[in-house]
């Protein structure tokens, strides 16, 4: 294990005291330290939102990109240099709202990246509007009469979209969360770690207490993580009990293993810029 201080950023997190995202940051640092990933080989990519500020708070390469576009940025970086460990972090608005399309496509590609979503069921940075995972009838500034849409179910969506590692954690249990993230990074293929990361400022319903009363660990129940049907069933559980842990895990070839260029082994970033058969290439046009 590497020392945790190796990942310490000069910049202090600007999250509200008590924000769930602190637990996620600590868990991520714990996970990469356990895996002994050198900060220079780690790329943390995010979109926009409170949670997307995370790359600034960890000492590693980072890309704090546009709202909803973290996954395509991470995809490009990973395809250019598959030797990097690529972790994507963001919130529910970023990943399940404005960036939902990319989320689904990244999963069906089974690209080897880890996606950590700090899901607080609210738009925090924009001061409290309904999010795609807000529970129905949730009252916010943008839904004073209560929301009238069904929430997105990220676990179910991931399961049917081809993700090969689907987990949910709770930032109130950082040790368990660190294990989920560590396994997600080690997993070959697309790993989703959805995290209940309470917003202490704008979401007064889905609080630490709310989750503490409800969450239970799938692992404690003799659950089989290779059963997709069971995973789908579990993904629909909410009240009175909410499962956390690994819902589903399977092995499939990754995008990098199948891509005709990447499978030759040389990362594009290390490949020579010149063409080997220039004359042959030019003669194609004669």
């Amino acid at each position: 294990m590497l020392e945790l201080s190796k990942y310490k950023s000069e910049t202090r997190p600007d999250w509200c005291p008590g924000c769930g995202d602190f637990g996620v940051l600590n868990a991520l640092v714990q996970a990469v330290a356990n895996l002994e990933i050198d900060p220079k080989d780690l790329l943390v990519v995010s979109g926009i939102g409170c949670s997307s500020n995370l790359p600034g708070f960890i000492h590693a390469y980072g890309f704090h990109s546009l709202h909803g576009r973290a996954i395509p940025i991470a995809t490009g970086a990973r395809l250019a240099n598959p030797e990097l460990t690529v972790v994507v972090t963001g919130g529910d608005g970023d990943g399940y709202g404005i960036g939902l399309g990319h989320f689904i496509h990244a999963m069906r590609r089974n690209l080897d990246i880890t996606y950590i979503v700090m899901n607080n069921q609210i738009y925090g940075l924009t001061t409290g509007q309904a999010s795609p995972t807000s529970q129905k009838s949730f009252v916010t500034k943008s839904s004073p009469m209560g929301t009238i849409e069904e929430p997105v179910n990220p676990i179910a969506l991931a399961l049917v979209s081809g993700a090969t590692y689907v987990a949910r954690g709770f930032s109130g249990d950082p040790k368990h969360l660190a294990e989920l993230i560590e396994k997600g990074i080690k997993h070959k293929g697309f790993a989703l770690v959805d995290v209940f990361s309470p917003c202490v400022t704008w979401n007064k319903v889905n609080t630490y207490d709310y989750f503490r009363q409800r969450v239970y660990k799938l692992n404690d129940t003799g659950y089989d993580t290779s059963d997709l049907g069971m995973a789908l069933e579990k993904s629909r559980e909410w009240d009175p009990k909410i499962p956390i842990g690994i819902f589903y895990e399977t092995t499939k070839p990754t995008y990098e293993e199948l891509d005709p260029v990447l499978r030759t082994g040389t990362p594009p970033v290390k490949a020579s810029l010149s063409q080997s058969d220039v004359d042959g290439l030019f003669n194609e046009f004669i």
Partner: peptide, 24 residues
């Protein structure tokens, strides 16, 4: 030796391009 990616939309296209360029 070109990684060619047909993406889901042009939002993904350019952001993938930027990600790849960022990686070098």
């Amino acid at each position: 030796g070109v990684v060619v990616k047909q993406a889901e939309d042009e939002l993904a296209v350019i952001n993938m391009g930027i990600g790849a360029a960022h990686a070098g």
